[in-house]
Amino acid sequence: MKAKVYVTLKSGVLDPQGQAVGRTLGKLGYEGVKGVRIGKYVEIELEGHDPKHAEEEVTKMCNELIANTVMENFRVEID
């Protein structure tokens, strides 16, 4: 099984990287860009075949290490 984890900055947390990318997209002529937020994508290869158990385990991993819940949200998908 594979877990896909999406880590994103909470709304309200300043994202200077996203702002810099947004500004550069504007300079490249993309006028419709209203905002850019940059996060992380993590793939975790897992043993076992129980998606529910895997989701619980990966959620624990996110809370303990992969995300900093002071400033980040995360979403887990199991494939």
């Binding site: 947390v13 300043l14 200077p16 990287q17 810099a20 900093n68 002071v70 400033m71």
Partner: peptide, 11 residues
């Protein structure tokens, strides 16, 4: 300690 340290505003 509470809180978190993130990228400098200036990058």
């Amino acid at each position: 300690l509470e809180g978190a340290l993130t990228r400098n505003e200036s990058l």
